[in-house]
Simulated assay, not measured.
Amino acid sequence: MDTNDDPLDDFDARTLELDGVARRVYTSGQGPGVIVMAEMPGISPDVARFSRWIRQAGFTVYLPSLFGRDGAHPLAEDGLEIMRRACISAEFHALAGRGSSPVTSWLRALARFAHRECGGIGTGAVGMCFTGNFALAMMLEPSMLAPVLAQPSLPLDDPAALESDAGELQAVRERLERDDLSVLAYRFEGDRHCRAERFAAYTAALGPRFVARVLPDDAARSDPPPFFRQVVGCPHSVFTAHLVDAEGSPTRRACDEVVAFLRARLWAPALFDAETVI
């Protein structure tokens, strides 16, 4: 298992000020913009690897630094402290009943920026774990056409609740139906942090345009980094820490499906069918 940090030196580290807030954003690639939002505890080497796969597939990746130390190998003690700070931050709503996290407003501005900078018909977004629902909240930005939710884990205190409030969910559903769009979502079957109840709630709120993929637990990598082994403690991160990097593995097939979804939405949207996507 690789225990080294990732220098991220094949990305352009930029400071982008949007809506009066400046953040570090790592960008790389050519083609339509795709925003990849890291899971807890931050932009790990596995998150960077996934971002490179998206880049290699023909997209410009925008990787915002939202928490943690960029490029760090996820250690248990460090990850717990980062998660504690995020849970009390005003930018994130980790508990039920508070609505979408305020940081999603800045992320929508990033989607607008990416669309202006890259051109094309729109942008995509992949949220993971703590940021999973953020990709859904970004659907309130008209340029966002391809949201992917990987093991959305907020709110932390209610497995059947959704971070988005009723008004936001209704607005997203109306947009999905009006613009013939869909949401692609992933979880492991035995994930204790993103349970079946949450996907059922998304289905109830969004209808058949919420396209759920549930992977078997035995498809998960058995030796994830320390934070995921000691703190997360179950199959969880489909595209990163629990991904089995082998051709034909269920998790690699899930990555391929995400690439196909992004290409269909951002390059040739008329070709995509939520029922037949690979």
Rank of each mutant, 00 (worst) to 15 (best):
D70L: 00
D70Y: 01
D70W: 08
D70M: 06
D70G: 03
G71H: 04
G71E: 10
A72L: 12
A72M: 04
A72W: 11
A72P: 01
A72R: 13
A72N: 00
A72Q: 13
H73S: 04
H73A: 02
H73K: 00
P74G: 07
P74I: 01
P74W: 04
P74N: 02
P74R: 09
P74S: 09
L75Q: 14
L75T: 14
L75V: 06
L75N: 08
L75W: 08
L75Y: 06
L75I: 00
A76F: 07
A76K: 10
E77K: 13
E77F: 09
E77I: 06
E77V: 04
E77N: 07
E77L: 09
E77Y: 10
D78Y: 14
D78T: 10
D78I: 10
D78H: 11
D78L: 08
G79T: 07
G79L: 04
G79I: 06
L80F: 00
L80S: 13
L80D: 08
E81A: 12
E81T: 12
E81K: 15
E81V: 13
E81P: 00
I82Q: 11
I82D: 10
I82A: 07
I82N: 09
I82H: 08
I82W: 04
I82S: 09
I82V: 15
M83C: 00
M83R: 10
M83L: 11
M83Y: 11
M83H: 00
M83E: 15
R84M: 15
R84D: 14
R84F: 10
R84Y: 11
R84A: 15
R85D: 15
R85V: 05
R85T: 13
R85H: 12
R85Q: 10
R85N: 14
A86D: 00
A86L: 12
A86N: 05
A86S: 07
A86F: 02
C87Q: 14
C87I: 07
C87M: 15
C87T: 15
C87D: 15
I88W: 00
I88H: 09
I88Q: 10
I88T: 13
I88C: 05
I88F: 01
S89A: 13
S89G: 07
S89Y: 06
S89C: 04
S89F: 07
S89V: 04
A90T: 11
A90E: 05
A90K: 11
A90G: 12
A90C: 00
A90I: 03
E91P: 01
E91D: 15
E91K: 06
E91I: 09
E91S: 08
E91W: 05
F92R: 02
F92E: 03
F92M: 11
H93S: 08
H93M: 02
A94M: 13
A94C: 15
A94T: 11
A94R: 11
A94Y: 09
L95I: 14
L95M: 12
L95K: 00
L95N: 01
L95R: 11
L95F: 14
L95W: 03
A96H: 11
A96M: 04
A96P: 04
A96V: 00
A96C: 05
G97N: 09
G97A: 10
G97P: 12
R98S: 02
R98H: 09
R98A: 10
R98C: 03
R98N: 03
R98K: 12
R98L: 10
R98T: 06
R98E: 05
G99I: 08
G99D: 07
G99W: 01
G99K: 06
G99N: 06
S100E: 15
S100C: 01
S100V: 09
S100R: 13
S100D: 14
